[in-house]
């Protein structure tokens, strides 16, 4: 199908929001540029996964990963990695679904901005899922294996967020290696834990984030995205020790 692309100026636009609520956007030529994107099918999937229990969220993430893998990933990146495509698709073609799933959109422009017109970066749920699904799909061919990796992402969302937040780590091999290391060493809990005794790092600093940051600081001297898993594991543990000194836990790892 053909997706008519919006023209610049729709963001943070009260009238556009009003027209969205009143289902008028599609009727107003002035919102559209002449450009279109083509995509075969555009199934609904959860685009905003901030609420609910961990198991609910996990379920929603799986739905999103599956839908994106099945129907969106094969398009050119100029489409599935394009904010304008997603904003156009959501605001013009997914209105009913969105209002049904996220009724808080009715509550104000800020909700609309935060759910529908959210900037397409690492904080955006579609972005997270597109990137995650792409890396897993490209590297892993077995369907149940893919599911396992999706689960690893969902279980380690905090680390995943930090990986895709830094441009240098937006890379399939690095992501999968890190997920493997976490899985093999059963570090999920450790990485989520708060760092103690380091007031200089702020109150809510997590071990996982700091390990990823240490990789960031070491780049490009250490070209971590290209390292083999075992080389990466060695460094991972070295950096982990900087922030996590519970020897009992670490002995378990070794």
């Amino acid at each position: 199908m053909e997706i008519k692309l919006l023209k610049k100026g729709y963001k943070n636009n009260e009238q556009f929001y009003k027209d969205f609520l009143e289902d008028q956007v599609k009727n107003k030529e002035e919102y559209f540029s002449d450009e279109v994107a083509f995509i075969d099918v555009t199934p609904d999937f959860p685009i905003y996964i901030a609420q609910g229990s961990e198991s609910t969220k996990s379920e929603l993430f799986h739905q999103a990963f599956d839908a994106i893998s099945d129907s969106y990933l094969h398009t050119n990146r100029d489409i599935h990695f394009d904010e304008l495509f997603w904003h156009s698709l959501l605001a013009v073609y997914k209105r009913d679904y969105l209002l049904e799933q996220y009724p808080q959109i009715n509550d104000g422009l800020n909700h609309f901005n935060n759910i529908v017109l959210k900037d397409f970066n690492w904080e955006n749920y579609i972005y997270k899922c597109v990137l995650g699904a792409q890396y897993i799909n490209d590297a892993i061919s077995d369907v149940s294996e893919r599911k396992r990796y999706y689960s690893l992402i969902i279980d380690n969302l905090d680390v995943f967020n930090y990986i895709i937040k830094y441009e240098i780590f937006r890379n399939d091999k690095f992501l999968i290696n890190i997920l493997d290391i976490i899985d093999e060493l059963k570090l999920s809990k450790v990485l989520k834990s708060k760092i103690t005794g380091r007031d200089d790092l702020g109150k809510d600093e997590r071990v996982g984030r700091r390990v990823i940051f240490e990789f960031n600081k070491s780049y490009p001297i250490i070209m971590s995205p290209m390292l083999e898993k075992d080389d990466l594991k060695e460094l991972f543990l070295q950096y982990l020790v900087y922030y996590y000194q519970d020897t009992k836990q670490l002995q378990l790892i070794e």
Partner: peptide
């Protein structure tokens, strides 16, 4: 000041 992998400078990071 530490420089990270993207060239960003962190003035207070390194003790």
């Amino acid at each position: 000041s530490v420089i990270d992998g993207m060239g960003v400078e962190y003035p207070d990071e390194f003790k």
